[in-house]
Simulated scan of single mutants.
Amino acid sequence: MARKVNKVEYQAKRNKILDVTYQLIVTKGFEQMSIQNILDQLHISRGAFFHYFSSKQQLLEALIERMLDDIEQQVSSLINSEHSATKKLQVFL
């Protein structure tokens, strides 16, 4: 029988991996960062990591997608605000 996945826990763990990845990219750079660095930071197994991401490339794609979603939300809320166009542009920049 297949194990049921708790979607909230799954997403929380996935986000934790993305958070650590972001910090490692900022401090080490993507090329110098290894999956082992992530495993060491989170104290998880290689198998656990590959449960969430199939490769380092997929991890980077997921991180970029999350960052773009965050930017989209920020811009969307700014566009829908009551500020003038000039103020919206100032806030955006």
Rank of each mutant, 00 (worst) to 15 (best):
A2N: 10
R3F: 11
K4L: 11
V5M: 07
N6M: 02
K7N: 08
K7Q: 15
V8Q: 15
E9N: 15
E9T: 12
Y10G: 03
Y10V: 07
Y10P: 01
Q11G: 00
Q11D: 12
Q11W: 05
Q11E: 15
K13M: 14
K13L: 09
K13I: 08
K13Q: 14
N15T: 03
I17M: 12
I17C: 03
L18V: 09
D19A: 13
D19T: 13
T21W: 11
T21N: 09
Y22F: 13
Y22N: 14
Y22W: 09
Q23M: 06
Q23E: 15
Q23A: 09
Q23F: 03
L24S: 01
I25R: 15
V26C: 13
T27S: 15
T27L: 13
T27E: 13
K28S: 04
G29H: 08
G29M: 06
F30E: 14
E31I: 14
E31R: 08
Q32C: 07
M33A: 04
S34P: 01
I35R: 01
Q36V: 03
Q36R: 13
N37T: 00
I38K: 10
I38T: 02
I38S: 03
I38M: 03
I38G: 01
L39P: 00
Q41C: 10
L42A: 02
H43F: 04
I44K: 12
I44D: 06
S45K: 10
R46K: 12
R46A: 04
A48Y: 15
A48M: 10
A48F: 12
F49D: 06
H51V: 04
Y52F: 15
S54A: 10
S54G: 05
S55F: 09
S55W: 08
K56T: 01
K56C: 02
K56S: 03
K56L: 02
K56N: 01
Q57N: 14
Q58M: 12
Q58E: 14
L59A: 04
L59T: 05
L60Q: 13
L60H: 14
E61H: 10
E61F: 13
E61C: 04
L63T: 05
I64W: 05
I64E: 15
E65P: 00
E65H: 12
E65S: 13
M67N: 08
L68C: 08
D69P: 00
D70V: 04
D70Y: 05
Q73Y: 03
Q74D: 11
Q74L: 14
S77E: 12
S77F: 10
S77Q: 14
L78N: 07
I79F: 05
I79M: 07
N80P: 00
E82C: 03
E82V: 06
H83A: 11
S84Q: 05
A85L: 10
T86Y: 08
T86S: 05
Q90P: 00
Q90H: 11
V91N: 06
V91I: 15
V91G: 03
F92S: 09
F92L: 15
F92N: 04
